[in-house]
C-alpha cells in the first residue's frame, strides 16, 4: 500500500460513494473541514464524521452529508489534516494538510493544500 506522500506525488486519487470517502493510504485524521463544518470529534457519537483506518485504506463517513456529489459545489473542497500511520503524531512536521475534490464517476482527487488556499490547522 502507498504512503500519503506517494499518493500525493503520483497524483493519486480516492473514491467516494454517497457520504463515504475512501483514501488509498493508512492515516490518522486530526481535523476535517467540509463546507463550513469543522470536525475534530471522531468519537462514536453519530455526529460529524467517523473514521476507520484499515491496512488497505482509510475511510470517512460524513453523517450530515448524505450525498457529497449533490451537496458540495464545483469549487468546494474537503480539507483534512492527517498523519501517515506509524509516524509520530506529536511532531507537527508530520502533519499533512490535503484537499479532496469531488470528480465524476466516484473519483476523488487528492492534493496537498496549495499555498493559495487559506487553511488553519
Amino acid at each position: 500500500m502507498k504512503t500519503i506522500d506517494e499518493v500525493l506525488n503520483d497524483n493519486g486519487g480516492g473514491l467516494y460513494y454517497g457520504n463515504r470517502v475512501l483514501l488509498p493510504f493508512k492515516a490518522e485524521i486530526l481535523k476535517i473541514v467540509i463546507d463550513s463544518d469543522i470536525i475534530t470529534d471522531f468519537s462514536k457519537e453519530l455526529k460529524g464524521a467517523s473514521v476507520r483506518a484499515t491496512d488497505a485504506y482509510t475511510e470517512i463517513y460524513f453523517y450530515d452529508y448524505k450525498d457529497l456529489e449533490e451537496e458540495l459545489s464545483k469549487y468546494d473542497i474537503i480539507k483534512i489534516v492527517l498523519v501517515q500511520s506509524g509516524d509520530d503524531l506529536f511532531d507537527f512536521n508530520n502533519h499533512i494538510p490535503i484537499e479532496l475534490s469531488i470528480e465524476s464517476k466516484h473519483k476523488l482527487s487528492i492534493k496537498k493544500i496549495s499555498d493559495d488556499i487559506i487553511f488553519f490547522e
Binding site: S36, D37, I38, I118
Partner: peptide, 11 residues
C-alpha cells in the same frame, strides 16, 4: 464571513 472563515478551519 463566518462561513468563509470556518471553511479555512478557524473556529
Amino acid at each position: 464571513v463566518k462561513s468563509i472563515v470556518e471553511r479555512a478551519g478557524i473556529k
